[in-house]
Design a protein around this nucleic acid. Structure first.
Length: 590
RNA sequence: GCGCUCGUAGCUCAGCUGGAUAGAGCAUCAGACUUCGAAUCUGAGGGUCGGGAGUUCGAAUCUCUCCGAGCGCGCCA
């Protein structure tokens, strides 16, 4: 596969130069090249690319960095891409590339279209991304939405980077929580039958959103459930409630264009032929990872109900955790952790060795034990990365939106999506690192100004498309489509520094994809797109003061063609990046 | 008391898994519209990267230690 990442391609060339220097006896055989990088310099006056090869290899080679840099410079001088080489600072090799090298990247972008930026980094490796996994006990709020958007964009990103991604949702439909849910709904059911239920007792879910579920039960069962014993009626109520709550969840996710391939039910772990939770615990016990023992009480203030007792423990300390973790509660039931271990064992059994979980920040204390469990289950061969999603603060024009959870009232995700639209929600959720708190301003995200990055990037795309519309009007016989333009254009006519800056930004895209995919950080795409849009808007506005810099030059068809290809490169990358974020790339702003 | 996530311009945040003189937006100030959509752009000022120590050619980034914020701390999920 040809290298579409121009920086990776140059790194290969540096490595080749290294091999040549080994052959020439300048470098020792088998020297470690793993720390060698080629990257864009922070300061553009340092050229197009910089490599640290001389500094990294100096010690092992027993030579001075600058001396080694001279040797590399001599080799790289004959490279077909290289126009100029400078050695600077402690031993940086600064490379200035010929225009033809950059034009190759632009050609590549326009030629490959939506595939530009995709890499085979993942080599088809199966990755499981588990995200949202909101309990089916109520509507999703914006915090869930952030995790949902993050997980979905990360899945898209990994897909673009050549991984085989499965998007998964874990339904917590077992345990005490859903029992409480069923009892709460049963009250709403009686209420729907016209009975006086009084106030919702403490400990049950008081939310209004359960009323329709109660009414649906009346429609389906009439009053027949009131005539059964609790242990018969409640399971029916519970199953029906979970079914309806999950339908709502899927619906709300669909409003964000989020579709999971796998919905994994916690109940399925224990309701099948084999109790997978028990089986998993025994599996671990057989390997010495589970034992009966006592835990020391927590330091500091002791919980009121602390009682020292022997319990079933997972030896997570053997895998880096701070303390061993209980698998059974005092009533004999499994802990949530126990079924979560069984769940992750299922992921491993289904062939995933790279697991990514998206959790709310309040679950941070849970990471070590889960990673310990995955290590124990896989004998250290599988990797679990947990991405924590920080809180979202809802604002309206700078003022916090009231989010009272009392009486189950809060702003739902659906309300926000309906108010500001899918694109605004998705982009803004991704325009921040996942572990940083996010202010989401309902007024600002629909503002049409540079203040609003969603608009700014989408406007860039729409503006670029308008160039093509205008070009069609200016020239009657323009070739149609990206490849038609490419075939007809003489790209060597691109020469202005502002054009070249844009060109370099386009060429950066595959590198951004790779880095973002490796780091599991989709926000890097959002920031990159903002920068690309910024370069494009800058070039555009220069055309107002300097007409010769406009994309369309009425009496110069050749130059116009070359510039249209450049604009096509912008369109290609903006559309591709926005697709990864799951945001629309509009042709016009309305 | 312990653990996790953080601390970067007045504000909101990036900083490419260790690179060169730390960047962007907002705000402030000064400019550019008979335009390929100014819904935009150009420039200026603004920093002990929370403090200190260490690792090395080189640290906002890695280690340690303080300070501060948020989250969590058998038998909730």
């Amino acid at each position: 596969m040809a290298a579409h990442n121009i920086f990776a391609a140059m790194l290969d060339r540096v490595r080749n130069a290294s091999d040549a220097l080994v052959a020439a006896g300048v470098l020792p055989a088998g020297i470690d090249l793993s720390r060698v990088t080629v990257e864009p310099p922070r300061d553009p006056t340092h050229g197009d690319m910089a490599t640290n090869v001389a500094m990294v290899l100096a010690k092992e080679a027993g030579k001075k960095p600058r001396e080694l840099a001279e040797a590399f410079a001599a080799k790289l001088n004959s490279d077909e891409w290289v126009a100029k080489i400078d050695i600077a600072g402690p031993g940086f090799i600064n490379l200035t590339l010929k225009l033809s090298a950059w034009l190759g990247a632009l050609r590549d972008a326009v030629q490959r279209g939506p595939d530009f930026g995709k890499t085979d980094l993942g080599r088809g490796l199966a990755v499981n991304v588990e995200y949202v996994s909101a309990n089916p006990t109520g509507p999703m709020h914006v915090g869930h939405g952030r995790g949902a958007v993050f997980g979905d964009a990360l899945a898209n990103l990994l897909d673009a980077a050549g991984f085989k991604v499965t998007r998964e949702y874990y339904i917590n439909d077992a345990g005490a929580q859903v029992d409480v849910l069923a009892r709460s709904v049963f009250l709403r059911y009686r209420e729907a039958l016209g009975q006086d239920i009084g106030a919702i007792p403490e400990g049950l879910y008081p939310g209004e959103y359960l009323k329709p579920v109660g009414r649906a039960l009346v429609t389906e069962f009439g009053d027949s459930l009131t005539k059964k014993r609790e242990n018969e009626s409640l399971p029916i109520v519970q199953a029906e409630t979970i079914r309806q709550m999950m339908a709502t969840v899927r619906d709300d996710l669909a409003a964000l264009n989020i579709v999971h391939e796998v919905f994994f039910s916690e109940q399925s772990l224990i309701r099948g032929n084999v109790d997978q939770v028990a089986a998993t615990i025994e599996w671990l016990r057989a390997r010495g990872h589970v034992y009966e023992g006592r835990l020391p009480p927590p330091k500091g203030a002791l919980p009121d109900d602390w009682e020292d007792r022997e319990q079933t423990l997972f030896r997570s300390t053997a895998f880096g955790d701070d303390i061993d973790r209980p698998l059974k509660k005092s009533d004999g039931a499994y802990t949530y952790f126990a079924s979560d271990i069984a769940y992750h064992r299922s992921k491993l059994a289904r062939g995933f060795h790279t697991l990514i979980d998206i959790w709310g920040a309040d679950h941070g204390g849970y990471i070590k034990r889960m990673q310990a469990a995955v290590a124990a289950l896989s004998d250290g061969k599988a990797d679990l990365d947990v991405k924590l999603i920080q809180l979202v603060r809802l604002l309206r024009a700078g003022e916090p939106v009231k989010m009272s959870k009392r009486a189950g009232e809060f702003v739902t995700l659906r309300e926000v999506v309906d108010e500001v639209g899918r694109d605004a929600v998705r982009f803004m959720m991704l325009f921040r690192k996942n572990d940083a708190p996010l202010d989401f301003d309902l007024a600002k995200v629909i503002e049409q100004s540079r203040d609003n990055p969603v608009f700014y990037v989408q406007y860039g795309h729409a503006r670029a498309q308008s160039v093509f519309r205008n070009a069609q009007a200016a020239f009657a016989d323009l070739p149609s489509g990206a490849k038609g333009l490419l075939g007809a254009a003489n790209l060597e006519l691109l020469s202005d520094p502002a054009e070249l800056a844009l060109l370099r930004q386009i060429a950066l895209y595959p590198r951004i994809i790779e880095a973002a995919a490796l780091a599991h950080e989709p926000h890097r795409i959002a920031f990159y797109l903002f920068d690309l849009a910024s370069e494009f808007h800058a070039l555009w506005t220069q055309g107002t003061a300097s007409p010769h810099l406009r994309f369309i030059i009425q009496n110069d068809r050749e130059l116009t063609l070359a510039r249209l290809v450049l604009v096509q490169g912008v369109v290609t990358v903006l559309a591709s990046g926005l697709a990864i974020l799951g945001v629309e790339a509009p042709n016009e702003m309305r």
